[in-house]
Write a protein that binds this DNA or RNA. Sequence first.
DNA 1: ATCATTTGATCGGGAATACGGATGAATCTT
DNA 2: AAGATTCATCCGTATTCCCGATCAAATGAT
Lengths: 300, 300
Amino acid sequence: MNLSSRQLKAFVALVEERNFTRAAKRCHLSQPAFSALIQSLEQEAGVRLFDRSTRHVDLTAEGHELETSARGLLTDMSLALENLRDHAAKRRGRVSVAALPSLAAGWLPELLARFHERYPGVTLQVHDAVLDPCLDLVARGEADFAVAALRPDMSDLEGQFLHADPFFLVCRQDHPLASRDRIRLRDALKWPWIATARNSSVRKHLEQALGDETPSALLEVAHLATVTGLVKAGMGIALVPAMTLFQFERPGLVIKPLSGRVPARRLYLIRRRRRSLSVAGQALYDLLLANAPSNPSGVE
Amino acid sequence: MNLSSRQLKAFVALVEERNFTRAAKRCHLSQPAFSALIQSLEQEAGVRLFDRSTRHVDLTAEGHELETSARGLLTDMSLALENLRDHAAKRRGRVSVAALPSLAAGWLPELLARFHERYPGVTLQVHDAVLDPCLDLVARGEADFAVAALRPDMSDLEGQFLHADPFFLVCRQDHPLASRDRIRLRDALKWPWIATARNSSVRKHLEQALGDETPSALLEVAHLATVTGLVKAGMGIALVPAMTLFQFERPGLVIKPLSGRVPARRLYLIRRRRRSLSVAGQALYDLLLANAPSNPSGVE
DNA sequence: ATCATTTGATCGGGAATACGGATGAATCTT
DNA sequence: AAGATTCATCCGTATTCCCGATCAAATGAT
């Protein structure tokens, strides 16, 4: 069984024109080529589809039988292709991106808005989750890619470096550290500090940087907004990456860079190895990569 | 837009095999040819449909999108073709034949039964009607062909001679004519006779044969069965073609040939000019033609 | 680290197919 | 009767298609 859309188109054209020469013209074919095309269709079908003399062209009963299905098939075909091309043109589609909460709240929204403005037909989904769930979502294919930190055990994921996010100290204006000029991480941690949850990338990063010397935190909270509140209330200090600072730019709080070798949190775009993204997904991926946060501190 | 079933089949094969070499084998193609076929489909679609490395073949998001429609299209195509081939093989179809009442009751049924036994999938329809409606049905395309007599004004119909149907006299055993040896038509018509309706082919034929000399009939009835009853009741004689005699073979009735030049009623298979019959229709047409009633009198 | 294996892509020549112009045959019109 | 229209056929050319061989990349075993 071999049937091409050219044959079906020729068939329909001939049904409508009832004239080989005109139908051929409509299909951008010479009359002999068109005639052969109809014959090939009849051969395929095993039945004569048209009664033709030099003066009349008419559907046979069997040709009539084919007419409905032929039109249906043609529209189905063109719908299928159009649907694909729509996806390709990002007029439709769906992109699911996983992002660390710190990024999902600050950096990401504006870019998502820009993407949406450009491709309004694409449905966007953001999973704001801490590192482990983020990576799981990508590994399971539920998210197209993630904006997150790396983890050692990512065998079937691959990361594209996006940004090095340096850490800052946040404390209250009246805190003793607020007036100091150069603050090392170790010094800061002598004070009571408020940590994010153990499975958050910020916390993991800090613990990795300090090794066993990490002093226990005063409090562990899930959301950065809570951290803000606690610092403002004078419960302690916080150590957070630059990209979350927008949450702390509030009166009464002081943001100070840390001196010394404090490794930055390295952020990546993370996707499945050997898997291409959907066209829409790739477009967002590229947009995010091209708009990696500027790096004021110059740390790579 | 040009899309062939070969491309779709290749696509589905690759989706299922996830391996070019095996999928190519399944399509009875070499691997390079198969590869090119997939590429042509991707070109047509405008999207990459598979992620392929030398080790893995996987559907892209767009490929996934196509999978459902591809399978649907393939089954629709093969259904359409199968339907046509069924018609060609007379496994399906519909034949509508118009026949004069005299034929529809006597000669036709057995042949229809034979046809039906051979092609049980074909629906049969018989219009038993007098000459004018018979021809109209064919002219309007509502019947595929008719078994009937000709009429002068059949410009767009064409007739294939089937059978010359000689006339016989039917009368009661105790009728004076019953014992006569040679009876001429004119002699017979001196007796009261029972005629069929004016628009019946039998009546038309008689009037044409006799010209203005046609004596008026005693009675005009629509159905031959009524004629039988009337003759049996002694109301008069009847003049009917041989093919209707089965209706008169009853005790107490005598059937006698007419001597002299009595033109036979000429029966034809009548179809639209320059129109092919459906495959099933042609088959029945041929069957009827091949089984034209034997002609005992030898009259053409 | 090195090498053999697997597998998809590419290349090149030969076969099959498709195409268009000219021609032929049938039919309708004038 | 002649001309016009139109579909089928023929035939030389151009294109496409297909296969075998080869290449290149990735993988896995040693």
